[in-house]
Measured scan of single mutants.
Amino acid sequence: IRCIGVSNRDFVEGMSGGTWVDVVLEHGGCVTVMAQDKPTVDIELVTTTVSNMAEVRSYCYEASISDMASDSRCPTQGEAYLDKQSDTQYVCKRTLVDRGWGNGCGLFGKGSLVTCAKFTCSKKMTGKSIQPENLEYRIMLSVHGSQHSGMIVNDTGYETDENRAKVEVTPNSPRAEATLGGFGSLGLDCEPRTGLDFSDLYYLTMNNKHWLVHKEWFHDIPLPWHAGADTGTPHWNNKEALVEFKDAHAKRQTVVVLGSQEGAVHTALAGALEAEMDGAKGKLFSGHLKCRLKMDKLRLKGVSYSLCTAAFTFTKVPAETLHGTVTVEVQYAGTDGPCKIPVQMAVDMQTLTPVGRLITANPVITESTENSKMMLELDPPFGDSYIVIGVGDKKITHHWHRSGSTIGKAFEATVRGAKRMAVLGDTAWDFGSVGGVFNSLGKGIHQIFGAAFKSLFGGMSWFSQILIGTLLVWLGLNTKNGSISLTCLALGGVMIFLSTAVSA
């Protein structure tokens, strides 16, 4: 259960009878995928790494000078000259100064003066180019299975845990398959586009800190620079940016070097996208990844198990997540596992009318040892309800109150669905055939309105939902006002479609 501690969480529900669903994975976010007769899966884009970055340009932001020398000439005696002028490691300046009897010249006039100092770069920052084909995306998957609280967001041991898996995709191999043991396998067909235009970005490294910066900004930095990788004795261009020549006297000129420019660069980098280094690879934390999940090989585990009949206890007080759902960790005293956990939410304890829904599909106890633990997640209705676990006299209950409203949740879900469709863009549509167009249209309606429909009408039977949709269509056909007619027709059509397409 990876997503319960992530604030940016998206719930995606598969269409009834569908074998695939489109998701948008982004750094700092987590996606929970639910479908009829399929286990619930949490998917998170953990890291995006980039390798084989080529150094484009380096800037010196802290330097020192040494070996200063000057040469001067009297008027009419030609130009002052130093051998160091031809050495690229030196920074030199030529000027004219007033000369006369007082400073060793027989004539009054302008004399030539040249001053040089050896330039040494102490600290530099480097910009590297990123090729999209060198990106690698690491995705962690977790099935809502027989897990306890100690396994949440624990990325170790996934090789031997059938509840978890790690997959890596690249532009050259965008397809992967996550093996989930008894739950089958989940196929991923990803489109490795981060949403960032790397043709316009460089990877900047300064003092063990890293950013993504725009090329134009990078090339306009007014500091000494050299092109390409460091060859040991780089040729620094624009050395004068960190060196200041003071007022010249008759035979000498003082040279000083400016202080470190790291603070000024940090100020200019305010708002830039931060990154990290992992050995020789860069780690990015921006952008998104679009994936199509193929769920035809994914299956529920323990459908044929019998119900657990022994007593359950709450190991922890049920807690609310950031998303309005409830996490419950229970301990089973029996030894008759594997068995299914009898769990439901009810409005009252007399009729036990089921409300809400299970995020953890078909929760089971897989071990036959005593005191096995299991964590599950529920989506309670707004208002008061009861969490009921167990059967008969051994069942345990917990009162729950959820604040908020169904309308607010439906609106929030619609906005999130619209954002998801905007990110998917043209990849969500198939114009290759008439059937493809209608299929894409259905998927689009489901992406945007599916979660809201589930919130508003999830407790009704599909037949009642179709009746309401048919009534809206009838009202649309018999209303003389054009805008009201079109609105009723659209709402009725969407409702009829979703009542037959969205899983219960």
Rank of each mutant, 00 (worst) to 15 (best):
R2E: 08
V6F: 11
N8V: 03
G18I: 01
V23I: 15
G28N: 07
C30I: 04
C30W: 07
V33K: 04
A35L: 01
P39F: 09
P39M: 11
P39C: 09
L45N: 12
V46Q: 05
V46R: 02
T48C: 09
S51M: 12
N52E: 03
E55D: 04
V56Q: 04
R57K: 13
Y59A: 04
Y59E: 07
C60M: 10
E62S: 13
E62Q: 09
E62I: 10
A63R: 04
S66L: 12
M68C: 08
A69F: 04
S70W: 11
R73C: 12
R73L: 05
R73Y: 09
R73Q: 08
C74A: 05
T76Y: 04
Q77K: 06
G78R: 04
E79G: 08
Q85I: 01
V91E: 04
T95A: 15
L96I: 09
R99L: 03
G100Y: 06
G102D: 09
G102W: 07
G109D: 13
G111M: 09
S112W: 06
S112N: 12
L113Q: 11
C116M: 11
A117T: 11
K118C: 02
K118G: 01
K118T: 02
S122A: 15
S122C: 02
S122T: 07
T126K: 01
S129C: 09
I130Q: 07
P132I: 04
E133N: 08
E133T: 03
L135I: 01
Y137M: 10
Y137D: 08
R138A: 11
R138M: 05
I139E: 04
M140T: 08
L141K: 07
L141H: 04
L141A: 04
S142A: 15
S142F: 03
V143K: 05
V143D: 07
G145T: 05
G145R: 08
S146C: 15
Q147E: 13
Q147D: 07
Q147W: 11
Q147F: 10
G150C: 01
M151P: 08
M151R: 11
M151D: 06
V153T: 10
V153W: 14
N154A: 04
N154R: 06
T156E: 11
G157F: 04
T160R: 03
D161Y: 07
N163S: 14
K166C: 03
V169F: 07
V169N: 07
T170E: 05
P171K: 05
N172P: 00
T179Y: 04
L180P: 04
G184K: 08
S185C: 04
L186M: 15
D189R: 02
C190T: 05
P192G: 02
L196T: 11
D197N: 12
F198C: 06
S199C: 02
D200I: 01
D200F: 02
D200W: 05
Y202F: 12
Y203C: 13
Y203L: 10
M206K: 11
K209E: 11
L212R: 02
H214C: 07
K215N: 12
E216I: 05
P224M: 12
H226T: 11
G228D: 06
G228L: 13
T231M: 04
T233M: 09
P234H: 15
H235E: 01
L242H: 05
V243N: 04
E244N: 14
K246F: 04
K246W: 07
A250Q: 07
A250P: 11
R252G: 04
R252L: 01
R252N: 04
G259S: 03
G263C: 10
A268R: 10
L269K: 11
E274C: 06
A275D: 01
M277Y: 04
D278A: 14
F285L: 12
G287W: 02
H288A: 10
H288T: 02
C291L: 01
L293I: 15
L293M: 07
L293N: 03
D296Q: 13
L298I: 14
K301P: 00
V303Q: 04
Y305F: 08
Y305A: 03
C308L: 03
C308P: 05
F312K: 09
P318S: 10
A319Q: 04
T321W: 11
H323V: 03
T325D: 08
E329Q: 09
Y332T: 07
C339L: 01
C339Y: 13
K340E: 10
P342G: 04
Q350L: 12
T351G: 12
L352A: 07
L352I: 05
L352G: 07
L352E: 10
T353H: 00
T353D: 07
V355T: 10
G356P: 03
R357E: 05
L358E: 04
V364G: 01
T366E: 00
E367W: 05
S368L: 00
S368T: 07
E370W: 07
N371Q: 02
N371S: 14
S372H: 07
M374C: 13
E377S: 01
D379M: 07
P381N: 05
F382C: 10
F382E: 05
G383Q: 08
S385I: 09
S385R: 12
Y386V: 14
V388T: 03
G390A: 05
V391C: 14
D393R: 00
K394M: 10
H398D: 00
W400F: 12
H401K: 13
S403V: 11
T406I: 12
T406E: 04
G408F: 08
F411N: 12
V415K: 11
R420W: 09
A428Y: 05
G432E: 11
V434D: 11
V434E: 10
G435Q: 13
G435F: 05
G435T: 09
K443G: 04
K443M: 15
H446Y: 13
Q447K: 00
I448M: 13
I448H: 10
G450L: 01
G450W: 13
A451M: 13
A452G: 07
F457G: 01
G458W: 11
G458I: 06
G459N: 10
I468K: 00
W474P: 05
W474R: 04
G476E: 07
L477G: 02
N478G: 14
K480A: 14
G482S: 11
L486P: 09
L486Q: 05
L486Y: 03
T487Y: 10
L489R: 06
A490K: 13
M495R: 00
M495H: 13
V502T: 10
S503R: 01
A504F: 13
